[in-house]
C-alpha cells in the first residue's frame, strides 16, 4: 500500500489532476443528491416526519392523501388524518396544504391549539405574519396563525391544525364530514399503505426522484469509466516498470494493492471534499433552491462511488496479471 501512496505523493501533479477530475464528478453527484434531497423534503417532509408507519386510504385514492375521502370511524384505536390543499387569502393569496390531527395525538407536531388556530411552515410567513387571520378562499373560513412548525408537502408549505378546527372548517365549507386517512395498525375496509408508498404517491415525487436517481446512476457509471480509463492508462504507461518488478520477484499482489490503494485514496479524498463542499453549499444556495444535506444519502452515494471505482480496477489489474515478466528481459515490453 505504501508503494502506491509513495507514487501518489511523488507524482503529485499527475495524481492531483486525476483527483481533481474525480472530485468534479463526485461533487456533481453530491450536489445533485443535495438537490434531490431538497426536493424530496419539499415534497414529502411532513409525511416522512409523522411518527407512524401505516396509512389506510380509500382504494380509489391511489395512495394520494388529497384524493382519499373516508367517512365514518373505521377503528376507534386508530388516528385520523385530514389533508386538503387550500388557498389562503389576506390581501394576497398563498397556497398551502392543511394537515389536521387530533389535538392529543403524538404522531405529528404538538397541536396545543384552540379551534380556528393553526401552526404554519416558516415559508408561509413570507406572505403573512404570526397573529394574522387568514381566510380560506373557497369557504371563507378564517384561521388564525399562532405559531410556526416546519412542514412541506407537494412543494408547498403545510398548515397544521387540530381535528376540531378541521371539523369546524368542513361545516363552514358545507361538504360531507370526512378524513383523508386512518393511521396506525388495524384492519379497516381501506387500502393499506406504507409511509414510503404515501410519499412516492405525492404528485411528481416519483418522476422527480426517478430523474435524479438516473442522473446519479449515469454519473456514477461515467465517473467509474473515467477513473478506470485514467488508471488503465497509468498502468499501461508503467507496464515496462511493472514487468521489471514482476521479473525481480515482486508479487502481483503487491503491485495490485498499490493500484487499489491509489484508487481508494483518490475516491475517498474526492468524496470527503465533495461532501464538505456540498455541506458548504447548503449555506450558499438561495432559499428558493430546494437543497438539503442528508448525510445518509451523501454517504450512500460516496460509498457507491468507492465500490464502483474499485470494481473499475479489474481492467488494469487484469492487464497486470497477464503481463509476461519474461518480456522485461530484452526490453520487449512497450
Amino acid at each position: 500500500m505504501t508503494l502506491g501512496l509513495k507514487e501518489m505523493w511523488r507524482k503529485r501533479r499527475q495524481f492531483g489532476l486525476i483527483l481533481f477530475i474525480t472530485l468534479a464528478i463526485v461533487l456533481l453527484t453530491t450536489l445533485i443528491t443535495g438537490l434531490a434531497d431538497g426536493l424530496a423534503y419539499d415534497n414529502g417532509a411532513t409525511v416522512r416526519e409523522l411518527d407512524v408507519d401505516t396509512f389506510h386510504l380509500t382504494a380509489d385514492a391511489d395512495g394520494q392523501l388529497t384524493r382519499s375521502f373516508i367517512e365514518g370511524t373505521p377503528n376507534a384505536a386508530m388516528t385520523p388524518l385530514a389533508v386538503k390543499p387550500l388557498t389562503f387569502v389576506k390581501g394576497s393569496k398563498q397556497d398551502a396544504t392543511l394537515f389536521a390531527l387530533p389535538k392529543d395525538s403524538t404522531i405529528g407536531p404538538a397541536l396545543n391549539l384552540s379551534v380556528g388556530e393553526v401552526l404554519v411552515d416558516p415559508s408561509f410567513l413570507e406572505t403573512y405574519a404570526i397573529g394574522d387571520t387568514v381566510e380560506d378562499f373557497a369557504s371563507g373560513y378564517r384561521f388564525t396563525i399562532t405559531g410556526v412548525t416546519d412542514g412541506r408537502f407537494s412543494h408547498g408549505p403545510v398548515v397544521w391544525t387540530t381535528m376540531e378546527t378541521w371539523n369546524a372548517y368542513q361545516k363552514a365549507a358545507g361538504g360531507p364530514s370526512y378524513v383523508s386517512a386512518w393511521l396506525g395498525d388495524g384492519d379497516p375496509p381501506l387500502t393499506k399503505y406504507s409511509k414510503q408508498d404515501i410519499i412516492e404517491s405525492v404528485p411528481g415525487y416519483s418522476a422527480e426522484q426517478g430523474t435524479f436517481t438516473m442522473m446519479r446512476a449515469f454519473l456514477l457509471v461515467i465517473g467509474a469509466f473515467i477513473l478506470t480509463a485514467f488508471f488503465y492508462m497509468v498502468t499501461l504507461q508503467k507496464l515496462p516498470q511493472l514487468g521489471i518488478l514482476k521479473a525481480i520477484g515482486i508479487r502481483s499482489q503487491t503491485i495490485g494493492v498499490a493500484l487499489i490503494s491509489q484508487v481508494l485514496v483518490t475516491v475517498v479524498m474526492a468524496s470527503l471534499v465533495a461532501t464538505f463542499v456540498t455541506l458548504l453549499a447548503t449555506q450558499i444556495v438561495p432559499d428558493t433552491v430546494r437543497f438539503k444535506f442528508e448525510l445518509t444519502n451523501m454517504t450512500l452515494y460516496s460509498a457507491l462511488f468507492v465500490i464502483i471505482s474499485v470494481l473499475g480496477t479489474v481492467l488494469p489489474l487484469q492487464t497486470l496479471r497477464r503481463l509476461d515478466a519474461a518480456d522485461a528481459l530484452g526490453g520487449r515490453i512497450k
Binding site: L3, K6, E7, R10, K11, P240, Q241, I244, L245, A247, I248, G249, I250, R251, A328, L329, G331
Partner: peptide
Amino acid sequence: RRKLRLNEIGFVFQDAHLVPYL
C-alpha cells in the same frame, strides 16, 4: 519460481529500470 527469483537471483537490466518514484 517467483520466490526463487526474489531470493536467489538478482537482475541487472540494460537501463537500470529503477522505480522512478522510490
